[in-house]
Amino acid sequence: MKKVGLYFGTFNPIHIGHLAIANHMVEFSDLDEVWFVITPQSPFKQKKSLLDNHHRYQMVLEATTDCPKLKPSKIEFDLPQPNYTINTLIHLEEKYPEGYNFSLIMGEDNLKGFHKWKNYEVILENYALYIYPRISTGTVSHQFEGHPKINKVDAPIMEISSTFIRKQHAKGKNIKPLLPFRVWKYLDEMNFYR
């Protein structure tokens, strides 16, 4: 049984912070693989500066080429929008009925709002959560403290954001060190976020 951690995000663009966290999860937890699930449209986010799905998929593919345990996933591209995590999980179970054990990877900031997620009780009943630290305000609901399905992973705190990268790139700042080389090359050639 392959243990797969699902790392959801718009990855607009994917950067070294995303890779560091995903790599930490496969190297220092019991996960065998991490799949970057590229979200076409989040119910909580507006679509203004979001690159097309296939471009973001391509950048994740470029970023994970040399990392066999990290894989891009376009599973949500064909699901009705706006989509909720519970629907993606059900869809994955149908698509991979055996051989895979799925769990969710999320930042501590997302865990603080997890009780607002659609069917969060069902998710927690059936899937493990792998939580990495984030600097954020607010507190985690007491119902999640010490929960047997919630695993806190002592990953490095990454304070790099895709928003910061897009804004600074548009201003002409050098953001090259914040991106995997192949991602920078693709982004530069396509003239994104200018």
Score class of each variant (00 low, 15 high):
P148N: 03
F181H: 12
D32C: 13
L129N: 07
L51C: 14
Q41M: 15
K45S: 04
L111F: 04
P68W: 02
G99M: 02
P177C: 07
Y100R: 07
Q41T: 10
Y193R: 13
L179T: 04
A155H: 10
F102A: 11
N12L: 07
F164N: 07
P72R: 07
P80E: 11
I160E: 06
P97A: 03
E145M: 06
S141T: 06
P68H: 01
N191V: 13
K152L: 05
K118L: 09
G5P: 06
F11R: 07
W184V: 09
I150Q: 04
P13C: 02
H147W: 04
K167Y: 08
L92D: 02
M25C: 04
F11Y: 10
E93N: 13
K173V: 01
S29W: 08
Y84H: 13
W35C: 14
W35K: 11
R182M: 12
F28D: 11
G5R: 03
N110P: 00
T163H: 12
L6K: 09
K47R: 08
F114A: 08
K185E: 15
L79Y: 10
L6D: 04
M190K: 15
I38Y: 14
Y130V: 01
V122C: 02
L111D: 01
D109N: 09
I131N: 11
H54P: 03
Q46S: 15
H18C: 05
N83V: 12
F44M: 15
K2T: 08
Y96T: 07
F164P: 01
D32T: 14
K118S: 02
N87I: 07
V37M: 15
Q168H: 14
S42I: 08
Y120R: 01
L104G: 03
W184S: 02
L104E: 02
L31F: 03
K112W: 00
H24Y: 06
P80W: 08
